[in-house]
Simulated assay, not measured.
Amino acid sequence: MAKVVAKVRGYFGGEIREPGSIFDVPDDLKNPPKWTRPYSFGGKGDHDGDGKTGGSKPAEVTADQSKPAGPVVVPADWRDGKAADRKALAKAITGENVANATEADRIIAAYVEASESERGPFADAPAPVTVTGNGVAEAIGGVQPDWIAPGSTGETGDDI
């Protein structure tokens, strides 16, 4: 697999790729999409996210540095809690120690706002009602014949 970077928005591999997204294309693909360019790291910098430049290996993550396993439940009255409780809640959200209560309040407020925006505006909307067919046949009392002979009453035994 060869890594490429999307230059513009495009569709590949069943997904819409935004500009700047990095993804893999098969090596046996003769011509990769024209809207991509080959991915290369391109020099010095922190390529592996450990804060060191060059060919460093990432540092081992300890249990204290790891992120929480699941979503954190924030009580509705979190602002009324003690500073130590708010700092502990912020630590549960970020996985890092928080310096003061003001920073903890900022972290908790941002977390609450982000979790509310993930729900979306119609998260509590009722499920859509599904109707079999298009409803016309039920409204007119069943399936109607394509053609009725002149002088016929439309009954099945009244055919010409």
Score class of each variant (00 low, 15 high):
12 F>A: 06
102 T>N: 15
133 G>D: 11
3 K>H: 05
40 S>C: 01
133 G>M: 03
43 G>W: 06
48 D>H: 07
150 P>I: 08
83 A>G: 14
159 D>P: 09
55 G>T: 04
24 D>F: 04
2 A>L: 09
54 G>V: 01
60 E>Q: 12
132 T>K: 15
34 K>M: 11
75 P>T: 03
114 A>I: 01
122 F>T: 11
25 V>A: 04
150 P>G: 09
147 W>K: 12
103 E>S: 06
86 R>Q: 10
105 D>S: 11
50 D>F: 08
97 N>F: 06
90 A>Y: 03
73 V>T: 12
46 D>V: 01
60 E>P: 15
61 V>K: 09
154 G>A: 04
122 F>D: 13
86 R>S: 02
106 R>E: 15
21 S>R: 03
55 G>M: 05
109 A>F: 04
14 G>A: 02
139 A>P: 06
42 G>C: 00
158 D>Y: 02
50 D>H: 07
123 A>I: 00
82 K>S: 15
79 R>M: 13
46 D>N: 05
49 G>D: 15
112 V>E: 05
95 G>C: 06
98 V>N: 14
126 P>C: 02
58 P>K: 03
44 K>H: 10
37 R>E: 10
147 W>A: 09
96 E>F: 14
127 A>T: 03
49 G>R: 14
93 I>S: 00
56 S>Y: 09
63 A>R: 04
132 T>S: 12
121 P>N: 15
39 Y>G: 01
110 A>V: 03
143 V>R: 05
135 G>Q: 06
